[in-house]
Simulated scan of single mutants.
Amino acid sequence: MHDAETTLRTVDDRRFDKLTALIRREIGVRLPTSKRQMVESRLRRRIVDTGFTTLDDYMAHLFDHDGLADELDVIFDAVTTNKTDFFREPAHFEFLAERILPARRPGGARFFKVWSAAASCGAEAWSTAMVLADHHHEIRWSVLGTDINTRVIAQARRAIYPSEQLAPVPRHLRERYVMIGTGEMTGSCRIHPDLRRRVSFNRLNLMAPSYPVDRDIDVIFLRNVLIYFAPEDQARVIARLAGHLAPGGFFLVGHSESMVVDQPDLEQVAPAVFRKV
């Protein structure tokens, strides 16, 4: 009998290609053959939990024995990359605080709306909320975070993080909006309830033909996600998101992604920052 490591690598190429084509079609993530070992590694625990011995047996369960429907969310959670940090690419948060918010007319009746469209564990949404809360006396605001991954959305809703993960948060914001755990929660922090009341998280697939989101969003973050999509999927997602921006609204992508934004109604106004015209 082969050891588990060897057995897991005997997956049938045809089934693997079928799986990666499904993932690309459903959630847009491209997984070339070079990513095969990563996919196997991330699915290994699920294989064991479902009582199968090999990845090939698991694939047979998916495609030959009608097991796919029950496993889709688990597969999508396993293959999506959720690297994120608080105040990642800080220039964007400086742009929000110094350029976007000062131009916002105080006292307006309409909420200032921000959408973190690939929210992962919530670090981007909570970082944004801290910046907005610093201007709470000037504007009324809300933040929506969405992601395809059910596991990270659950973490974002809990708003509990290891203390070291909050290290990039500027000290004055950390003192106001982060609660330090004690007792059995020592080593953990939680976002302050004042922010949690204004931030919501929902599951959303960027490959869906339409999004159940308002069409007057002031700022949309979609950072470090487009790099995983094929060019034609990038264009479709950008176009759909642009349709949810208010006139003059801002669209922010990762600093390595500026070149993929080629949308007629979006003009670049700063590095990786675009405005709807």
Rank of each mutant, 00 (worst) to 15 (best):
E184N: 11
R104M: 14
L173P: 03
H135M: 02
I139W: 12
I148S: 01
S142T: 13
D194G: 03
E184W: 04
A159P: 01
K113M: 09
A156T: 13
E98R: 15
W115S: 04
E89C: 01
A133L: 01
N149G: 06
A156C: 10
Q155R: 15
A125M: 03
V143S: 02
I220R: 13
F87G: 15
T128V: 09
H137T: 13
N205W: 07
S120G: 11
H92W: 09
T128R: 11
A125Q: 08
S116D: 09
P168N: 13
V114W: 02
A208S: 13
M207Q: 15
C121S: 14
L166A: 15
V143W: 05
H172D: 06
S116P: 06
R171E: 11
R99L: 09
A117Q: 06
W126C: 08
R190C: 05
R140A: 12
T150I: 03
M207E: 14
L96K: 00
R157V: 12
R88H: 13
P162Q: 01
T84M: 04
V225T: 13
I220F: 07
L166I: 14
A97N: 05
R88E: 12
I191P: 01
S200V: 07
S127E: 06
V169P: 05
L195D: 00
F221G: 10
V225I: 01
A129W: 07
G183H: 08
V114A: 02
I100C: 13
P106N: 07
A103N: 12
G183E: 08
E98D: 15
P170C: 07
A133Y: 02
I160A: 07
R88L: 05
L204C: 07
P170Y: 07
E94W: 04
A97G: 00
A156L: 12
P90D: 10
I100W: 06
V199R: 00
T182M: 08
L204S: 02
Y161H: 01
V213M: 15
V178A: 00
R88M: 07
L226Q: 05
H172A: 12
F112L: 10
V131L: 03
A117C: 08
H136P: 00
D218R: 10
D194W: 00
F87D: 15
L166V: 14
M179Y: 00
T182W: 04
V143K: 10
E184Y: 06
G145P: 00
S142Q: 15
L96I: 12
R198K: 15
M179I: 12
I180C: 01
V178I: 04
H135S: 11
F112E: 08
R223H: 06
Q165P: 00
L166F: 03
P102C: 10
D214P: 14
S142W: 02
H135T: 01
R174D: 07
W126D: 11
L144R: 04
R157L: 12
E164Q: 12
I220V: 13
I148D: 00
E94P: 09
S120W: 08
A118I: 03
